[in-house]
Each structure stands twice: as structure tokens, then as C-alpha cells.
């Protein structure tokens, strides 16, 4: 029995990787932590919708919109990396977010919020609106005023317009108005 075990030990040799003195056994395929690039983020919130663990959060704080990556909750699925249209989340093979300070686990970007011209509530980031304008301009689409409204006001505005349209139709005596 002893000779078998000794033979096994001799054949297998030294298996230990002397991390941290030696580099770790890390393949390039490893899905590591994400690096958040604040210069590229526009605060669209696509990442927060796909994240299964809610490690990506979008929060309105005062007149700022904060995008937050909580590495402590991240399950390293990289769904946000595939979802981000701006490449603001970079996939790395880094595994070391170890810390003794809880706050170090958060990466935050505060975006300037755009206020709704009608009700004044913060509903999107200025950068996102600038980006949308840019896209619309390049497509040659005219930017209407109601695009600036928050979703709630836009809904009310749309209903109001619809209603005005219907009343107008009724006055003109059209029988089958828009419902």
C-alpha cells in the first residue's frame, strides 16, 4: 500500500502553484469582473434590465441619475457586457475585487439628469437625450417638443392631442371618429 502511494506521489510531482508569488492558473476565457468606463456610459439602463442578480442599478438621486455596478452582487454572467450598446462595460479576466472596505465594491457614475419641461421631474440623463438627438439628426428626423417630455407627461400629452383630434372630427361631422 505504501509503495503504491509513494509511486503515485512521485509520478505526480509538485502540483502546487505558488500564488501569489507565481501567476494564477487563469485561462483567457475566464469571465471576470467588469470594468465600468464612465466616459462611455450614457445612462440608458440596458444593463439593469438584463442583469439576473440586479448588480446593475439605475437610481434617481436628486437631479442626478446614478448608474451603479455592485461587484459584490455580480454573478459574472457578462449579460450586461453583451447588452451595453456603448461598450461602457468592459469584460476582463480579473478576479480580484477583494477588499476590506464595503464601499470599494461599488462603481458609480453620476449623470446629469434632464428635467421634464412640463412637470420638472428627472426622467433621463442629458447624455442619453443628446445621443438620441444625434441619431435622429443623422436619420434626418425632426425633433419634436414632446420628445423632451417625461413618459408620464408624454402619455398625457398624447391623450390630449388624441382627444382634440376626436373633438375636431366630431365637429366636422365625421361619423366614425378615432376611438
Amino acid at each position: 500500500m505504501i509503495h503504491r502511494i509513494l509511486a503515485l506521489a512521485l509520478k505526480s510531482g509538485v502540483a502546487t502553484v505558488r500564488y501569489p508569488r507565481q501567476p494564477p492558473i487563469l485561462t483567457e476565457e475566464f469571465r471576470g469582473f467588469l470594468v465600468f468606463d464612465p466616459t462611455k456610459c450614457v445612462g440608458c439602463g440596458a444593463c439593469t434590465r438584463v442583469c439576473p442578480a440586479n448588480a446593475m442599478n439605475l437610481e434617481i438621486r436628486g437631479n442626478e441619475i446614478v448608474v451603479e455596478y455592485f461587484a459584490g452582487r455580480c454573478i459574472l454572467c457578462h449579460l450586461c457586457f453583451y447588452a451595453c450598446p456603448f461598450g461602457a462595460l468592459v469584460a476582463t479576466t480579473s478576479f480580484d475585487r477583494t477588499t476590506t472596505n464595503f464601499e470599494d465594491l461599488f462603481d458609480r457614475v453620476a449623470h446629469e439628469g434632464a428635467a421634464c419641461p412640463s412637470c420638472g421631474s428627472i426622467h433621463a440623463t442629458k447624455r442619453l437625450i443628446q445621443f438620441v438627438d444625434l441619431v435622429l439628426k443623422s436619420e434626418g428626423i425632426e425633433i419634436e417638443d414632446r420628445l423632451r417630455l417625461c413618459p408620464e407627461c408624454r402619455r398625457i400629452e398624447a391623450l390630449r392631442a388624441l382627444n382634440a383630434f376626436r373633438i375636431g372630427m366630431e365637429r366636422e361631422g365625421v361619423e366614425h371618429g378615432v376611438e
Binding site: 492558473i25 485561462t27 476565457e29 475566464f30 469571465r31 454573478i75 459574472l76 454572467c77 457578462h78
Partner: peptide, 14 residues
């Protein structure tokens, strides 16, 4: 290590 090479994670293949 093989699992990590194939899927990108050592245990939670995802």
C-alpha cells in the same frame, strides 16, 4: 480548469 476553458467559469458555467 477544463470547465473554465470551455465555458468561462470554473463552476457556474452559465
Amino acid at each position: 480548469v477544463l470547465a473554465e476553458k470551455l465555458t468561462g467559469s470554473r463552476k457556474m458555467y452559465g
